[in-house]
Design a protein around this nucleic acid. Structure first.
Length: 105
DNA sequence: TGAGTGACTTGAG
DNA sequence: ACTCAAGCCACTC
């Protein structure tokens, strides 16, 4: 019989892709989705990351928008947290935007 | 069942 | 550089 798509599997794949992002590099939601075998599922990636359990050790901060900006408002708590993590890895964020040179692609 | 929403992307104007 | 619209997947009401 045909097995179900099993959404949990996709979640597992996304986790693995995010975990595979090397230190000092970043990737966009769309890129992560594509690498996970889920093209155009950028929104799904965002949903999965939002659903991350605390202390998952997943480098979720390395996942940003395709335009180099973070997915949060610049005045939000999450934004500053992510910004801090990125700078801790030597990634420079200029004018609320990450230089494309840091992208995995 | 269907409209609304979201840590998104892309293209057009 | 800006806004708008359409497409995308999963969840909520």
């Amino acid at each position: 019989m045909i097995t179900d798509p099993v959404p949990e599997d996709s979640q597992q794949r996304i986790w693995q892709v995010v975990a595979a992002i090397p230190r000092g590099k970043v990737a966009s939601y769309g890129q992560v989705a594509e690498l996970a075998g889920l093209p155009r599922a950028a929104r799904l990636v965002g949903r999965i990351l939002k659903n991350l359990p605390a202390g998952s050790k997943l480098p979720w901060h390395r996942v940003i928008r395709s335009n180099g900006k973070l997915a949060f408002a610049t005045d939000s708590e999450q934004y500053h947290c992510q910004l801090d993590q990125l700078q801790a890895e030597g990634i420079a964020v200029i004018n609320a935007r990450v230089n494309p040179v840091y992208f995995l692609w």
